[in-house]
């Protein structure tokens, strides 16, 4: 199933609804890469609350999503990593690297607001 991507203001929210195959994860990566440009998005949230497993492939794809979005001028926040999933990731040796995370969607939106407000101030000073 394709992950629905909602446009909310200047942000895109990808809300994962079920377990994803590798192919579906790559499809999400490609869809987000295209939509960041199409909607001139400043921030992306990927909500992984429903994922009961984040294995090495999922983590690598999420890192790729964030790196691609950054190259296109958007910040990415991963929200909703479950405690058991975080535990398994740490044991497996997986990290999200430079990718920012937040507890849930609300915290993620607040974090993006902070980031883009800073950008707005910088723009105003020019």
């Amino acid at each position: 199933m394709r992950v629905p991507i909602l446009k909310q203001g200047k942000y895109l929210i990808a809300s994962i609804q079920s377990a994803l195959s590798d192919y579906e994860l790559l499809q999400l990566r490609d869809d987000l890469a295209a939509q960041v440009g199409k909607y001139r998005t400043r921030g992306v949230i990927v909500d992984v609350t429903v994922l009961d497993v984040m294995d090495s492939f999922a983590v690598r794809t999420l890192r790729a999503i964030a790196q691609i979005a950054r190259m296109r001028g958007a910040e990415t926040i991963i929200v909703g990593i479950q405690p058991e999933v975080a535990f398994a990731m740490v044991q497996l040796g997986l990290t999200l690297g430079q990718v920012e995370t937040a507890l849930d969607l609300e915290e993620g939106l607040a974090l993006l607001d902070d980031r883009t407000r800073q950008d707005g101030n910088r723009d105003a000073e020019r």
Binding site: D22, D52, V53, M54, D55, S56, F57, Q82, P83, E84, V85, F87, A88, M89, Q91, L92
Partner: peptide, 17 residues
């Protein structure tokens, strides 16, 4: 338990991949 369920699922995912 919950943590073991996730750990087991993750391990299966890795060897299946």
């Amino acid at each position: 338990g919950d943590t073991d369920l996730t750990v087991i699922s993750t391990a299966i995912s890795e060897v299946a991949r």
